[in-house]
Amino acid sequence: MDLLKTAREVFAIEARAILHLAEHLDADYDKAINAILQAKGRVVVCGMGKSGLIGKKIAATLASTGTPSFFMHPSEAFHGDLGMVTPDDVFIAISNSGETEELLKLMPYLTDNRNYVIALTGNKQSSLGRAANAILNISVEQEACPLQLAPTASTTATLAMGDAIAVTLMHAKDFQPEHFARFHPGGNLGRRLLATVKDEMIVDNLPMVNASASFAELVDCISTGQLGLAVVQSEEGIGITTDGDIRRAFNRYNKEVFDLTAADLMSASPKTINAEAKMSDAFAIMEANKITALIVMEQERVVGILKK
């Protein structure tokens, strides 16, 4: 058995399935997108089995890109969760066959509730297709499964259709990185775009020494501060000495390094930033200068240190 050949065949089948989706797009796609844009409520995504797993990802993608959405399991919906669906919601029903019993049971309620129903199905003439307001065709020529039983290419196509919906809505809403960051405050993007320097800077026990401090005092300050640096204060302003500066000094001066002071080893005019600045600005400065720390200043006074 050629294992690599099998894998390549799967990729080829699923790639063709995605490419064929573009050929299936028609006016119903516009109708579906406009219905979501005009809806005052949320998008409810519903599917059974593998379609349900794909539906959870679609709902998560929509929610994180500016379209309020949640996933509803069809069996749970039929036993009370339909109470979460308001008339203002758009309902996305996923079924490759279009004959999933658990989904079809929900259609009378959705019709009575005046919900706009979008069907993601591979059979436009199915019961689900006939009940829907808009049909997005996710049919595939074949599954990657050699038995043509396990949903493979069809679930990939469904996922791609969900991504297309989400991205189209992002364009329509002019969804920007700042908006994305608001929904991901715990991630690196959220930290960069939402947080300010004062939210992240270190303010306690700052490692600071006078310019006249001895080499031993300077090393002790860097070690005690545990930030890999010391801020050097002089009459002319401030400087900075890093543990890298200490290592280079040893290589350059050997035993004579112990005769040096903090003023001899500091880098003058270090990069600084205001406490009210955005973290995105701070990261930009650090990346442009290939450094990992900034001194935070307010009214010519050191108030913190920001570490990358």
Rank of each mutant, 00 (worst) to 15 (best):
V231Q: 09
K307W: 00
S127T: 09
P151Y: 05
I295Q: 06
A150Q: 09
A230N: 09
G304I: 10
Y29E: 01
T155P: 02
L53S: 00
S97P: 05
V140H: 01
L136H: 04
F283Y: 15
A172F: 07
N251T: 12
A164I: 13
L103V: 07
A284T: 11
K124R: 15
L159Y: 03
L260A: 10
Q226P: 02
T156W: 02
V209K: 12
A181C: 10
G41C: 02
G80S: 05
E200G: 01
V219Y: 01
G52L: 07
P87V: 07
K40M: 00
A35D: 00
T272Y: 03
C221K: 13
V85N: 06
A131H: 01
I285M: 04
N289L: 10
T121L: 05
L3Y: 15
E300S: 12
V43W: 15
V257H: 15
N205E: 13
N254W: 08
Q299Y: 10
A293I: 08
D89L: 00
S234Y: 10
E235R: 09
P74W: 06
E276A: 15
S139F: 03
R252L: 07
I94D: 00
A134Q: 03
M107L: 14
A153Y: 00
Y109D: 04
L218K: 11
I246W: 06
I33M: 03
E217N: 12
T61E: 05
E101A: 10
N137C: 13
Y29G: 02
G187Y: 15
I202S: 10
E235G: 13
A134K: 00
H73N: 14
I135K: 00
D204H: 13
L120C: 05
L21A: 09
K278G: 10
D281W: 12
V231C: 13
Q38G: 04
C46T: 14
H184E: 02
A262E: 10
A262C: 11
T261P: 02
N289K: 14
G162M: 03
G83D: 01
K56D: 04
I305W: 07
E298C: 08
T6C: 05
N96Y: 08
G304F: 03
L110I: 03
L169F: 08
A263T: 09
A249E: 02
A157S: 13
H24K: 14
E298V: 07
F91T: 03
L37F: 07
L227R: 14
F175I: 00
K105H: 12
G129F: 03
K308A: 14
T242F: 10
H20E: 15
A288N: 06
K105D: 11
T152D: 01
L103D: 02
A32Q: 01
M297A: 11
S51E: 04
T65I: 09
L294T: 08
R192H: 12
V167E: 06
L62S: 06
L169G: 10
